[in-house]
Computed example of a mutant assay.
Amino acid sequence: MEYFIYALNHTYTDDSHTDTKFLGFSNSLEDLEKLKAKAVLMSGFRDYPDCFVTDCYIMDKIHWNNGFEKVIGEIGRDYIEKGDEIDENCISVKELGLSTVFSVSHSYTIHTFLDDERYIGVFSTLKKVEKAIEELKNKPGFKDHQDDFIICELDLATLLWSSGFGSC
C-alpha cells in the first residue's frame, strides 16, 4: 500500500527572481487551508496571495534514485518540480495516524556562496530514512558527500514560517 501526504509551498516571481518557500506538510486539505490562512496574513505572502501551491508526495519514496553528476540550476538547488501522481491505490497518511514525518535533503558546500542541494523525499519513520540514505550513499554524487544528508522531523499541520518575508 502506498500513502501520500499533502505539502504547501509558496512560489512567487518578482522583478529579480523566483523563490519557493516550503510551508508545511499535512494529512488533510482542511489543515493545509488553515496553514495557508495563517501565512497569507504575513508580509510577502500577502503580497502574492495567489502563489500558494498544494502538492502531494508519496511517502517513503526516494526522488533521487540514480544519484547526480553535476550542480543543477544557477544557485545549486534542485527540487522536485511538482508533486507525485496519486492514483486510487494511494491513500492519505491520515490512515497511519502520524503526527510527524521526516523530510530528507542532501546539501554540500561548493564554495563560499554556493551550496548544491537536492530534496530526497518525505518518510514515515526514521528507520525508513536511514535505509534510504544507506541506499543513496553509493550512488554518483552522494558517495562523494556521504555525511551531507539532512533529516528534519516535522510536525504535521504546523506552519513552518513564523514571520513573512521581504519589506514590511
Results as ranks from 00 to 15, higher is better:
Thr11Met: 11
Val122Gln: 04
Lys34Ile: 12
Asn65Val: 14
Ile80Leu: 15
Arg46Trp: 00
Ile110Val: 15
Gln146Ile: 12
Leu96Ala: 02
Ile133Glu: 01
Glu153Arg: 14
Lys128Leu: 14
Leu114Tyr: 05
Glu95Leu: 08
Leu114Thr: 11
Ile86Ser: 09
Gly121Thr: 03
Asp148Lys: 11
Ala157Phe: 02
Lys70Trp: 04
Ser16Ile: 13
Trp161Asp: 06
Glu135Ile: 02
Asp116Val: 02
Leu126Trp: 00
Arg77Gly: 07
Asn27Ser: 13
Ala7Met: 03
Val53Met: 06
Ser103Asn: 13
Glu95Ile: 02
Asp55Asn: 15
Glu117Leu: 07
Arg77Phe: 11
Phe149Tyr: 11
Thr112Asn: 14
Phe102Trp: 15
Asp60Phe: 03
Leu98Ser: 03
Asp19Tyr: 12
Ile72Val: 12
Leu136Ser: 01
Val53Phe: 03
Glu81His: 10
Asp19Trp: 05
Leu126His: 11
Phe4Asn: 04
Asp55Gln: 13
Ile62Arg: 09
Lys143Gly: 02
Phe4Trp: 02
Val40Leu: 05
Ile151Glu: 06
His106Gly: 07
Thr54Trp: 02
Thr100Phe: 07
Thr100Asn: 14
Cys90His: 08
Ala157Ser: 15
Tyr57Lys: 05
Tyr6Lys: 01
His10Val: 07
Asp55Tyr: 13
Ile58Arg: 10
